[in-house]
């Protein structure tokens, strides 16, 4: 029988080997494609903490993806136009430094997650889905009407932001940054899962009554998970915008929120590498089938249908013959 650790190791090895091979045969587009999968995986890893561990089906995680994107877009826009960004309390000239952009993206995402979480975690089930969707739409339409940063057209960044000691314009170097971040976050996620917090969060998903009767506060556990989750997806958003050197309201779209959920379900909810496998499948389908037909989502839908009907543990669950987290 195949065990989950083997699958995890294989997937990570594959994600590393493919761009290196592409580098050797000089196919930079493949590297960019894998980078895209890595970043989407990172965004879904963030959502998986809420969805897989906490059992909260957030249909608004594009909010954090978009915030990360706009954090990058706004900071880089002011840096490239030498204009001043007035934040009331202080002003800044923007920055092209990735680590600073990431910190800002995560801080703002975390703060917004705290506010959205406080309001939406009072509900559960369908109401939670709807309220998170509503927040997503609010941000989407706000971004569309935000003329200062391109409105519907978004913001283009001429040169990819910089990372000390690296040339981020070289695809393999930018890939390396994203891959290292993904590995770090996966490591943190695994620590989190096995920690007392992870145990308590998982218990609150399986039985809130149980958690309460041993003196735990399910609402507070979920809120903290929501904030951590938002920060990770926000970081992914900043990287995604940097990959494309472009940010637009589409990063806030509900389709994206839905796709992140689909990625997790395809890979396996609550699993360490579930979102990563899901993202790889998604990007592969998008690339290969997307080249043949505009309606490639039909095939994605068929795969999703098969997994939901025949294996609740996603691809990992089917390979290891174990069930995933019940959400």
């Amino acid at each position: 029988m195949i065990n989950e650790r083997m699958i995890n190791a294989l997937v990570l090895a594959g994600l590393l080997a493919l761009p290196l091979y592409a580098l050797a045969v000089d196919e930079p587009f493949t590297i960019t494609l894998v980078t895209r999968a890595v970043i989407l995986a990172l965004a879904a890893v963030g959502l998986n903490i809420v969805l897989g561990f906490g059992g909260m089906v957030s249909f608004g995680h594009a909010v954090f993806f978009g915030i990360g994107g706009y954090a990058m877009g706004i900071l880089a826009y002011h840096a490239q136009t030498y204009s001043t960004l007035d934040l009331g309390l202080f002003t800044t000239e923007g920055t092209k430094l990735m680590p600073v952009i990431w910190l800002v993206a995560m801080a703002v995402s975390g703060l917004v997650a705290l506010i959205i979480g406080l309001l939406s975690l009072r509900t559960s089930g369908v109401y939670f889905i709807m309220i998170t969707l509503a927040f997503g739409q609010m941000f989407f339409y706000f971004a569309i009407s935000w003329a200062e940063y391109g409105g519907e057209d978004g913001v283009s960044i001429y040169v990819r932001n910089s990372f000390p000691g690296l040339n981020t314009l070289v695809p393999i170097q930018f890939f390396a940054i994203c891959f290292v971040i993904l590995c770090l976050v996966l490591f943190l996620k695994e620590r989190l899962r096995a920690s007392p917090f992870g145990l308590a969060l998982n218990a609150a998903r399986q039985s809130a009554t149980r958690a309460e009767t041993v003196g735990l506060n399910p609402m507070r556990l979920r809120l903290v998970a929501f904030v951590i989750s938002g920060m990770i997806t926000g970081l992914a958003g900043a990287l995604f915008a940097d990959l494309n050197r472009f940010v637009s309201p589409s990063m806030f779209s509900w389709q994206l929120s839905g796709e992140l959920i689909v990625l997790i379900i395809i890979g396996g909810a609550g699993r360490l590498m579930g979102p990563v496998i899901g993202a790889c499948v998604f990007v592969a389908l998008e690339h290969f089938l997307g080249g043949l037909t505009d309606f490639w989502h039909v095939y994605l839908g068929l795969i999703l249908l098969g997994i939901v009907l025949f294996g609740r543990g996603g691809i990992i669950g089917m390979l290891t013959r174990t069930e995933g987290a019940h959400v």
Binding site: P196, A200, L216, V224
Partner: peptide, 12 residues
């Protein structure tokens, strides 16, 4: 953990 300790440990 719920009664005696604290769930706010994320690393160990």
């Amino acid at each position: 953990i719920g009664a005696g300790g604290s769930p706010w440990r994320f690393w160990r």
